[in-house]
Design a protein around this nucleic acid. Structure first.
Lengths: 257, 257
DNA sequence: AGGTATTTGTTCGTATGTATC
DNA sequence: AGATACATACGAACAAATACC
């Protein structure tokens, strides 16, 4: 039995969480290292297993540790620098050759990984947010193309594209099959060339649903990028909403002063 | 006593969390509305108070509800304070007049709020990440200007700016007092005009330290923007790292196709 | 102002289930 | 098969903050 001071104003489980957090940041418990078991901690710190669990909950919610039933609890290993994203940017690095494949597939394969997508297409009424960005009234019918994107068979992103129905009506976009040339190319062929994007980036905790779909560990927040595309007449032609797990993404932008 | 099906494969507390989540998203429980008490929920759903607490923990960690001892539990109200960081962008909306005040003060006051900053300046060895972005070796001495930024006396952002020591040595930047004309102007006066920025955006859960400094509620993730500034010779002259609570910020970018 | 009831926070104990070693 | 470890669930008690009369 070590510390845990009853005179301390902080509750026991917070003191314990702080002590364990120190053992991680100090390097005593290295990334990947096995944590003492709940029972061990309870006896070491002379407290109940329930209190230990409260402390571990805190660390789990911070994303510092992960637990597996039957195996044990471990210090989260340094984020595998899974890196990615580069939804950039003014710089004209996009060569014509790159436009042959859609952006997601491009980016993943450039990193030597295998990309796969599962798409569905629906026709739904636009909610208030989508409608606002597409400059229409809420409830107007839009086409939505929902994609789950995988890299090496691990789910990586959830992306939904919304289009005004009259623009994409009879196009390839309404077909759930992959659009190899990319949807921007299809829009261009339809007479609406994307010339400008407006991005809104927010971040929040996931719902259980999203945790399941994206195989999220505890304490991993979601980034949300909402991109509105405008055509050559500055009309909004697409709203793209993508959800990005925080442990495997970096968004990159280049900005001119 | 309502639902909660023991035959359901999901544990009771997750079923309950899902049921309560529905009552929020369906609008049955409006933002700001008071939640039933833990005791009420336990009897309504015919389960123990402990199980109710597990369900509420889940919603708390998603940032959907907040609880206060002695008062009750409430649906988190839609953040009316949503601060548009608008750390944009290519569009030349920056008039000369606006350059009189630093970016943060500008942005806040434009929203009719009161801005305040507390700054400190230190000289420290650069860690690996900062060094990489400033194109120097780790451990090289840099100047760092740390700011806590407040809007209406609530902490809003934590921002650290790193500069190669030889550039800012005898400048205003080394003085912790506010730089009213903005640090970019000072750099320009020193012969290094910022002409291009590279932004890296990530998001993660805060540490306890950050929770305290930023008055973060539970289930609120942090956004992190790392901006590297390049001068007219494309030399990196500043790395700016700002931490943004997810419940008060939207990042905006404009991108040309 | 003061006291009581209500509500969430903390902490213990105990038991059983389920995954892994 | 057995031991170990985390997950789920119940019960109970007291503390601390708040609300209400």
């Amino acid at each position: 039995m070590t510390s845990l001071n009853p005179a301390d104003s902080r509750p026991l489980y917070q003191q314990l969480a702080a002590a364990l957090r120190d053992r991680i940041t100090s390097g005593d418990l290295q990334p990947g290292a096995r944590f003492p078991s709940e029972a061990d901690l309870a006896s070491q710190y002379d407290t109940s297993r329930n209190t230990v669990r409260l402390a571990l909950d805190a660390l789990r919610n911070e994303g510092l540790i992960v637990s597996q039933q039957g195996r044990g609890t471990f210090v989260r290993s340094a984020p595998p620098t899974r890196y990615y994203a580069s939804l950039t940017g003014s710089r004209a690095q996009r060569l014509e050759a790159e436009r042959q494949r859609d952006t997601f597939t491009q980016q993943i394969e450039r990193q030597g990984r295998t990309a796969r997508q599962v798409s569905t297409v629906e026709v739904v009424p636009a909610d208030a947010e989508i409608a606002r960005h597409l400059n229409m009234s809420a409830g107007t019918t839009v086409a939505v193309r929902r994609r789950v994107m995988y890299a090496d068979n691990e789910p990586l992103q959830l992306g939904d594209s919304y289009y005004p129905i009259d623009i994409v009506q009879d196009s390839k976009i309404m077909n759930p099959a992959d659009v190899v040339e990319g949807t921007d190319q299809v829009l261009e062929d339809l007479g609406h060339t994307p010339t400008r994007y407006e991005d809104e980036i927010t971040w929040r905790m996931p719902t259980v649903d999203e945790v399941a779909k994206l195989h999220l560990g505890p304490g991993i927040p979601l980034g949300r990028l909402l991109r509105t595309s405008f055509d050559q007449n500055d009309l909004p032609i697409e709203v793209y909403v993508v959800l990005l797990p925080g442990d495997r993404h970096v968004l990159l932008y280049e900005v001119e002063a």
